[in-house]
Nucleic acid binder design. Structure first.
Length: 271
DNA sequence: GTGATATGCGGAT
DNA sequence: TCCGCCTATCACT
């Protein structure tokens, strides 16, 4: 679930349900008991997202920082909230709704200065209005590292995960192993613009769909296929299956300890 | 029921 | 480069 679009949805959800009013906070599981007690009764001033980081700014100027990691999940519901089931790290409750957080890799209260340090470590987020793609380009254009690795480095670009990086490189016809410094500037601009498009769509839809209308199963006369991760994609987790555009088997390899997927024909080596 | 797997990332080695 | 985190889902028995 958690690439950047998910976190931006969560921020919007928090803003809508809890923004501008006092929240009740508890840690049924107990692992965030002290933090929850400090949050309890405070006004949630603003819910924000930067990359995969959810930032809930509180009245005392501290920020509740949540990172879902690979396991973390949120469930929302209407009050009255049921007895918590499973390991609920944090439960927030407002006037009419509650939010349960399970399995996050981070759930902590941060002082303003620490939030700044955290955000200074993050690259521009395609989903944020204040994002400057040139900041990322400076890193990309000087790096010998493969563009596929750079795209998942949150200090270069904040928000994309394994699905968006595979899909945007496919859509832009870029070999994932191409070193950043060998990428043309216009090619980077196209990748960035496509990330903005895809991720904003992901926020609206709540799932990752990257397949253009002319390549959908319907358009190609194939049976509809929705992948296990909830969306329609070109290459992510389609190893060995035919490329939706050219029919070549999709390739897979491990790169920097993450699974990488690409079409060797549609994503030629030299771009 | 069991086991494999995962959209992430920090820390140890 | 590997390990651990600690939850949900899904394929299979």
């Amino acid at each position: 679930m958690p690439e950047g679009h998910t976190i931006h949805r969560l921020a919007a959800e928090h803003q809508r349900m809890f923004g501008g009013r006092a929240v009740r906070a508890s840690s049924p599981q107990g692992r965030f008991a002290v933090g929850a007690a400090a949050v309890d009764g405070q006004v949630l001033v603003r819910a924000d997202a930067h990359g995969k980081h959810l930032l809930l700014v509180l009245a005392d100027e501290r920020t509740l920082h949540v990172h879902l990691g690979i396991y973390g999940t949120y469930t929302f519901g209407s009050l009255p909230a049921p007895e918590p089931t499973g390991a609920v790290r944090l439960r927030l409750a407002g006037a009419a709704h509650f939010a349960d957080l399970r399995g996050p890799s981070r759930c902590e209260l941060l002082e303003p200065g620490v939030v700044k340090v955290l955000r200074d470590r993050l690259g521009p987020d395609p989903l944020r209005a204040d994002a400057d793609p040139d900041v990322a380009w400076r890193r990309v254009s000087r790096s010998r590292t493969a563009i596929a690795v750079l795209l998942m480095d949150q200090s270069v670009v904040a928000g994309p995960g394994n699905i968006y990086r595979a899909e945007v490189l496919f859509r832009q016809g870029v070999d994932p192993r191409l070193p950043g410094r060998r990428l043309a500037r216009e090619r980077w601009a196209a990748i960035w613009d496509d990330l903005v498009l895809l991720m904003a769509d992901g926020v609206r839809a709540g799932r990752i769909d990257t397949v253009r209308p002319e390549h959908t199963p319907e358009a190609m006369g194939r049976p509809p296929r929705v992948d296990g991760h909830g969306g329609e994609v070109y290459v992510y987790r389609r190893a060995g299956q035919p490329c939706l555009v050219c029919g070549t088997p999709v390739r897979a390899a491990e790169l920097a300890a993450r699974n990488l997927f690409w079409c060797p024909v549609c994503q030629p080596a030299a771009v």
